[in-house]
Amino acid sequence: MKLEEFATGNSFIHHLDPRGKVVAAAFFSGLVSLTQSLTAALAALVLPVILVALARLDFKRLMTRLAVVNGFILFTWFFIPFTFPGRVIYSIGPLDIHWEGVLYACLLTVKSNAIILALIALLGTSPVLDVVHALSHLGVPDKLVHLFFFCFRYLHTIREEYHKLSEALKVRSFRPGTNLHTYRTYAYLVGMLLVRSFHRSQRILEALKCRGFSGRFYILHHYQMKRRDYLFTSCGLVLPCLLVFIL
């Protein structure tokens, strides 16, 4: 589980204000997911490609990420070309491949990858807590931000607990298989994980109360929208519109 794989870097994109990036990413995803034309989707794909190039992300890791995320898209290729009504271009046995189906599958693939690339280039290039901080500025309720903050903060701790438990299983030469013993063991593992997280959360709450926590995090680092941030965000709002609506 590699978190924040692309968050470290020193490019122009990495230094932009996360609020602008969140707005641009959300707008771009929404717009592209609504488009129904392949040309518009292809045109829209250009923008995230430029962003990724600007952010100078590691090409190999980017491709592995894209390959993983495209699993669902690959799945649609197994049936959309056959089931989407249209002109038959090729027949394999009883199955007909329809031209419109191939186009539709292409459309889904391009749209999906455009959005994924945009999210990697815009949100992936900020540390997660910065993105959440930006969200709290953009009107996401405090409680949700706090929930997310605690969840993210203790994700690694709980993962360590999980590793401890699974090592304990290994030491006792547990070998997973398709049997009731395995399922019972995993159920107890999950149960223990829940119990440990519960204990930990009680300690956190007590510690917070001891320090007079009043339900508010004080932020020391404040964002400032500079001229380039305004420029970038307005480009992020105008360019996709131009591409999608003109084509």
Binding site: Y154, F198, S201
Partner: peptide
């Protein structure tokens, strides 16, 4: 309840 719910979600 926020820490409890957050940690259950993490678990």
């Amino acid at each position: 309840r926020i820490p409890q719910v957050a940690l259950l979600a993490a678990a």
